[in-house]
Nucleic acid binder design. Sequence first.
DNA 1: AGGCAGGTTCTTA
DNA 2: TAAGAACCTGCC
Length: 285
Amino acid sequence: MKIKKEDGNRKMQIEIKDDFDLGKIADSGQCFRFNKCGDGYSVVAGDKYVFVKEVGDDKYDFSCDEETFEGFWENYFDLETSYSGIRKLIDKKKDIYLYSASEFGKGIRILRQDPWEMLISFIISQRKNIPAIKASIEKLCALSGKKIATDPEGNIIYSFPTPKELSKVSMDQLTACSLGYRDKYVHQAAMDVFSGACDLDSYKELSDEGLMEKLLALYGVGVKVANCEILFGYHRLNAFPKDVWINRVLELRYPQGFLFDKYAPYNGVMQQYLFFYSRSEGLEG
DNA sequence: AGGCAGGTTCTTA
DNA sequence: TAAGAACCTGCC
């Protein structure tokens, strides 16, 4: 990875040789504030904002200074991990479906997102389609987050609310975010995290099983949401969330069973390829 | 108009 | 312990 400074440090040009496809990451379903905007992508994480644009030859412009890139975005995009290396675990002859999915999804990475933001986002996600999830989250951020930037199209960008900020939002205000019956789950999670009853930071030390147990104890968090939190919020790449799409893939394409042992500890990355592929392909026939 | 969307909780046997 | 129903809301 090479770094080139421009424009008085306000813009960085980075060369990324490993798998890196902004469009696929945006559509991979792991993030909800990562959207196409003009000729690039608008990315919001917590109280950070960056505009990223591909400029050819594996080079990308980031609208931030070097310190912010190295201190935050480099880690956020998980640039130290080789996803091309992970794809090499897939045997084309023995698992042609996953191989096809991984070729199709080449460029996807698992972002290192914040456990708090992921917890709330995936609680909201249940029984909602992706546009609806995004709309709810944006309303929530506009309601209780802070103004942190303006995107190239002139939209004001708000930070994701902190536990303190979200715990102060009334149930009526949550209802106004189209959360539906999830409003009480979000409220309770905010109260639990703000009070310290749920200490997401300390959960990093737990075993996979211990972490799962803590997450399932939260109101509104079941196995699917907990697995999303473990994979996307805690970046434990072996977590394998099973949603309706993945279940469809497992039933149709893996009647003999998926090779979880073979792909450990990267089953979660494989899940992303399968998810992305199944959604765009459809699963007829 | 009725069903469904990246599920979870609550109720009932 | 395990199915089945109920649940908000928006969109096709």
